[in-house]
Design a protein around this nucleic acid. Structure first.
Lengths: 153, 153
DNA sequence: ATATCTGCAAACCGTTTGCGGTGTA
DNA sequence: TACACCGCAAACGGTTTGCAGATAT
């Protein structure tokens, strides 16, 4: 019993702000705006954390009890394909999602609470780039996750 | 799917040479050395790549057709708990394993071939440490993976 | 009107586990 | 001999999918 589970209820920090609304994006892509989608998109717009599919489903059911989990999964995949959300597979838990229009950042996951803290280091990005260069590779994307606990001083 | 260890920038990397043998480790831990385990351990000792459970199973069956996939999973978990192997969950595939006694390194995954290239940057490690410090966290472990394709120049 | 979308249930895939029998220490 | 271990099959958790009916455009 050494597997740590990462709880996935975070109390987020920044709210997602100035972006083209999800509905707008769907409309542009010629995708129908249905009732279940409206509910899910609103939840995503309001979310300040990194919810997983089940959590989105729980929030959605409160608004419309007839929504199916499968629809949540289908909608998230559709949004991911559109490039509107990012999917993160952190250790020891289901995939978690976040709006894609924030600037690129990496994540620090609080092992005790599941909270996700975003950070960015231009220097690290450069070093990654340099390493890939030296190895003769073009980076398509990368994943940098720190797993830790609050320092008790 | 092979794996290369690349001598690299900052800190040099030594070849994952023979340290304490797996069998020795098991014996010290008071764990029985059975026939299926012998087969699996030999496969791991000889492996120069990062095989997943199914691949280890395939190789094992060639040696002893009666081995079960469940035994591979059980053995890998046991080795992981012992700290003898590391489990990596790269994107879009099953977990892959590698011997734990190499020095710490990160991974670049070739998206075309699945090859895994190891690298290490002391500078990046320092920066991660610094970021965690600033955020008030102690890092337990981290994950840095670059996903890319060979540069066609 | 009709193609897209839905809910439901079943399938999926990698992994774990309960069982009763086997073999190691 | 005793208990750890095995193979087998069934269960698991997260996710995807086939279907037939519902709905947005």
């Amino acid at each position: 019993m050494n597997s740590k589970t990462v709880p996935n209820t975070a109390t987020g920090q920044k709210a997602s702000s100035a972006h083209r609304s999800y509905e707008e994006e769907l409309r542009e892509a010629g995708i129908r705006i249905t009732k279940p989608r409206k509910v899910i998109l609103k939840i995503l717009t309001q979310a300040s954390d990194h919810p997983d599919a089940m959590e989105i489903f729980r929030r959605a059911v409160k608004v419309d009890a007839s929504i199916a989990l499968a629809t949540v999964y289908r909608t998230m995949k559709m949004l991911e394909d559109l490039g509107a959300v990012h999917r993160h597979s952190f250790e020891g838990g289901p995939a978690r999602f976040e709006n894609a229009d924030a600037e690129h950042h990496d994540h620090l996951i609080d092992l005790d609470t599941g909270d996700v803290i975003e950070f960015h280091s231009e220097r690290i990005e450069q070093l990654q780039q340099q390493i890939a260069d030296e190895l003769g590779y073009d980076i398509e994307h990368h994943r940098l996750e720190l797993y830790g606990r609050k320092r008790k001083k």
